[in-house]
Design a protein around this nucleic acid. Structure first.
Lengths: 174, 174
DNA sequence: CCAACCATGTAAGCTGTTACATGATTGA
DNA sequence: TCAATCATGTAACAGCTTACATGGTTGG
């Protein structure tokens, strides 16, 4: 019963208030949230699966089916959000990491958020170090100008994430 | 016969020199190229499919099977690389865009690269405008501090891509 | 009244992942 | 000789996408 990233996004969105499938689709369609497809073919089967696993509960109210998060759903979401940020995660799916950050809004304690941002900062810095080490290695001598520039794009991108993490920590500390 | 992004990556890597399946796996494993899985379960079936579509050709040389790109493969790759950068692409898959950029190394004419970078710059700027417009809209007033910061992360990230595209254009002009 | 939007779903198909499986070669 | 690495593959499964399908409601 592995929960996909879309599954967690749905849990996070229903955690605040119960939602219809259509409302959830609209969020993906109208806001820059994640990069999830808003197609019914992705949302409805995903909701169905969450219900099957007792993470969501469907209650019909005048023709519309509202999805409520269950206690088990809350526990699963919390565990997802509190997982420390690793280098592997930011490397392969930093979007997922940012999604996790956004849903940390529900956590009472600010120290949870600050801790998240701290592990984020370290993971990003560590990845930047890796990329820069690669650029200095012999492997990099084989790079063409295009290849070198593509790598530099990656480094600059992660430097922006790093700067953001410092800024975000300040926002929560003040 | 849609070619997946992994398929194009394999075409791009074999375009320079014929490669064994194992060598291709090693590239994904040892270098920060794309974020492709280096597992045999992804590479070998992908190569098989390219061969079936006559985009690659397998030639056995003392037990190893070297994959050569065919003329049809070269044409497919070229058309992929020359597709203009759109807002939709950088929004959903900027990694793919960067992959396309990296493989433009094979193009003789620098103006192809400069044109690519120019459409990249415009697409990125346009997306930044969208994000900033969203932040100023009423929709954004519903954002929590976490949500606002996640959005700001996105904006900063694309600003880094924008700055890079200016820098890259300078590198090719000088 | 009719177009647009609300609202929910299914079916086929593709891609990629993990895990399993095998065997050759090479360097310590 | 034995562990690591080279080298190639298959099978089961999960997940998402596109396309298809249906019907209600509402505002101009």
């Amino acid at each position: 019963m592995e929960i996909s990233i879309l599954g967690y996004a749905l849990l996070g969105l229903t955690a605040g208030a119960a939602q219809t499938g259509y409302a959830l689709r609209k969020i993906f369609e109208d806001t820059p949230m994640g990069n999830f497809s808003s197609s019914p073919g992705s949302i409805y089967p995903a909701l169905k699966k969450l219900i099957k696993n007792d993470l969501l509960e469907q209650r019909n109210v005048n023709g519309k089916s509202l999805h409520h998060i269950t206690d088990a759903g809350k526990i699963a979401l919390k565990s997802f959000l509190r997982t420390p940020v690793t280098k592997a995660e930011i490397q392969s799916n930093i979007d997922h990491t940012l999604l996790r950050f956004a849903f940390l809004q529900g956590e009472e304690d600010i120290s949870i958020t600050l801790n998240f941002l701290n592990t984020f900062e370290n993971a990003v810095q560590s990845h930047i170090d890796d990329l820069q080490a690669f650029m200095k290695s012999e492997s990099a001598s084989a790079l063409t100008l295009h290849g070198r520039l593509a790598m530099e794009n990656g480094i600059r991108s992660f430097q922006a994430h790093h700067a953001w993490s410092i800024y975000a920590q300040q926002e929560f500390s003040s």
